[in-house]
Computed example of a mutant assay.
Amino acid sequence: MKKDTKIVRAGRSAKWTNGVVNPPVVRASTVLFDSVSEMQHAAANRANQVPFYGRRGTPTTFAFADAMSELEGAKGCYVYPCGTAAITSAMLSFVKAGDHVLVVDTVYEPTRDFCDKTLSRMGVSVTYYDPMIGSGIEALMRDNTSVIFLESPGSLTMEVQDVPGICHSARQKNSDVVIVLDNTWASPIHFQPFTYGVDVSVQAATKYVAGHSDCMLGTATANARCWPTLRENSYLLGQCASPDDSYLALRGLRTIGVRLKQHQRSSLTVARWLAERPEVEAVLHPALESCPGHEFFKRDFLGGNGLFSFILKPSSPRALTAMLDSMVHFKMGFSWGGFESLILANRNVASQRTVTHWPYQGPLVRLHIGLEDVDDLIADLQAGLARYNEQQ
């Protein structure tokens, strides 16, 4: 099937839909059995999506997991209450005390906090690496390196990693190392991680998968080698997700293809407009040549989305505040991936990395370009930049 057909059909097996279009919401804690043999069969089939206990999942959860597995080309998918839970559970599934992990220096801030505050307390050492390291990752690997964590593009600063180069080089050094990728930016639609050597792909399904800023959900899909370990350890950690949120994600998933096309089209229009503004020092959009790793984006990705950043020339905090305070269509918020446009500023990017040099002095502004008319969005940014200039 072609991609757009898969989006419509994935997770809609007759065993989940029971003859209707959408898998229904099945809420349950207790699952009832009429015989000892029936209960024993359910208990023994944890791997086969047989209802046993609500924490293991209901048909709604199973349908959503099937959809994500199919779209990413995975052996299986575990569903979590948020993206951070997916990240932490995926890493905990493959590390033990005394291990060493490699984590990209541009990683999502909560992931870094988990590594520095939780993994370190467990006796797991962490080395951060330059997102542009590529095949040079081999030089940082140790005999006890168990996990390499990638995020591409990088959180906030949008560096695109050479995922196949890292995977190939790492496996030359140690074929057993587990490579985990945060694939939230691309979603299951625009980057196929298992094609390029990734073992576990993590998503904040809160973002583009659900697409409407009204549920919290995470997923981790895995290849055949890593799926049993991921599934078992996530279950032992007590991870489970609401069937209502799984239903919302299934519903949002059906339109992700058309939504991403509009997000991508509008974001490129805005990014190119910003690149011509005198207040802007740099635009960090993976689809533009000015973005580090753009060549890997062109080679490996099937498309983009609405999330990118730009750097303003050095200014006073007062000027930045004046710009942000009266935006009409761009509201401030920490998530993204919904239908609405968002804006978020960060003046301390350099403090959030430990290996790579941040070359800019001005503030970073991250935009999520929603589904509003792009001319209205540009007018909003133009008015914001006018306020910015007035306060310089």
Rank of each mutant, 00 (worst) to 15 (best):
G257E: 07
L274V: 07
Q262P: 00
H212F: 14
Q262G: 00
L237M: 14
L230I: 07
E279Q: 15
R254I: 02
K261N: 12
R231A: 12
L268W: 00
V258A: 14
L274H: 08
Q262A: 12
P228R: 07
E232Y: 12
N233G: 00
A282E: 12
R231T: 00
W227Q: 09
T269Y: 05
H212Q: 12
E232F: 11
G257Q: 03
C215D: 02
G252I: 03
L260N: 12
T269V: 14
L237W: 11
L230T: 06
L260W: 00
H263M: 06
D245Y: 14
A222D: 09
T229W: 00
R225K: 14
N223V: 04
A222F: 09
S267R: 05
L260V: 01
D244E: 14
H212E: 13
D245A: 13
L268E: 14
W227A: 10
L250T: 00
W273T: 05
S234F: 06
A210P: 01
G218I: 09
A224T: 11
L274Q: 09
R277D: 10
G238A: 07
T219K: 02
A275Q: 12
T229V: 11
E232Q: 15
A271F: 04
G238E: 06
N223A: 05
I256A: 08
L250R: 00
E276M: 08
P228A: 08
E232N: 13
R272Q: 14
T219E: 02
R259E: 11
T255L: 09
